[in-house]
């Protein structure tokens, strides 16, 4: 006999397994589909100013931009809630505009990561300034990028 009839014990077990496998596969297929479609829209690239300029990121594409807040670049608009500042990686600088509350640790000369998109006239419009920092008070991506641009000094690490 090639297959057991369905009313025997073994047959029932097979039937049960079949349903199990079927449900598992459906759930899995559903999950994979969801994952792929959701992923497309919600990943954001991390770039430093040099990357942003060199890679010709189109206007409006959602990215994260990281670097140091350039000294003497921070200005506050009259409404008291809109801020302009430059983010630099040493080689290149991008001007950022942001409306909203700044995190506690935001200072000129500090590392920062902002989320947003490139607007008109080369100004980066930030929708969020990330509040989280690790214990070294410097985002890890910023350290990596500064190292890559040869600007990261050991002394700086200790003072931070």
């Amino acid at each position: 006999m090639a297959s057991a009839p369905l009313n025997t014990r073994a047959g029932k077990r097979k039937k049960k397994r079949f349903y199990l496998v079927l449900t598992s596969l459906t759930v899995l297929a559903l999950a994979v589909g969801l994952v792929l479609s959701a992923l497309e829209d919600s990943i954001s690239l991390y770039l430093d100013p040099t990357d942003l300029i060199e890679r010709n990121i189109p206007q409006g594409q959602h990215v994260r931009l990281g670097g140091l807040v350039a000294e003497d670049s921070f200005t506050k608009a009259d409404d008291g809630l809109t801020y302009h500042f430059d983010i630099t990686d040493g080689a290149n600088t991008v001007t950022v505009v942001y409306k909203g509350a700044l995190p506690d640790l935001f200072r000129e000369g500090q590392g920062v990561v902002v989320e947003g998109a490139q607007g008109d006239a080369g100004i980066f419009i930030a929708s969020e300034v990330l509040a989280k920092h690790d214990e070294n008070y410097m985002p890890k991506e910023v350290i990596d990028s500064l190292k890559k641009r040869g600007l990261y000094k050991q002394a700086e690490e200790e003072s931070l």
């Binding site: 969801l34 959701a38 829209d41 919600s42 990943i43 954001s44 991390y46």
Partner: peptide
């Protein structure tokens, strides 16, 4: 270097 944002987790 990328980050996967909350929209992904919230949806999936």
């Amino acid at each position: 270097k990328i980050t996967v944002g909350p929209p992904f987790f919230n949806l999936a």
